[in-house]
Amino acid sequence: MSILHTVNKSPLDRTTLKSCLNLAVKGASVLLIEDGVYGAVSGAESTQMVQDAMGDVAVYVLGPDLKARGVDESRLIDGVKVVDYDGFVDLTTDNDTVSAWV
């Protein structure tokens, strides 16, 4: 079994990213969408938490939501992969289950 988690809130506003990372098994994927994309940036309070998790889980970020917010990809934590909506769909089919941290 493999699982994709989606997180749509900034980690500086809500704790859903933290909850998600606590409950993500090794090998899980985490996709940051909507305001969740702020969790993908480096130099933020949340950066260390995400970097620590990246040893066990793959972190993706939705490019269109990054662009909408003026967040340049150069600001992303190393190793975070940018996907578009097609990539989002592929992540849901590559994994067996999708868990949304709304």
Partner: peptide, 17 residues
């Protein structure tokens, strides 16, 4: 909320694929 628009974009991509 952005949820509706994200869902619309997801659905469009899914059917296109």
């Amino acid at each position: 909320h952005e949820a509706s628009v994200t869902a619309i974009n997801f659905v469009k991509s899914a059917v296109a694929k």
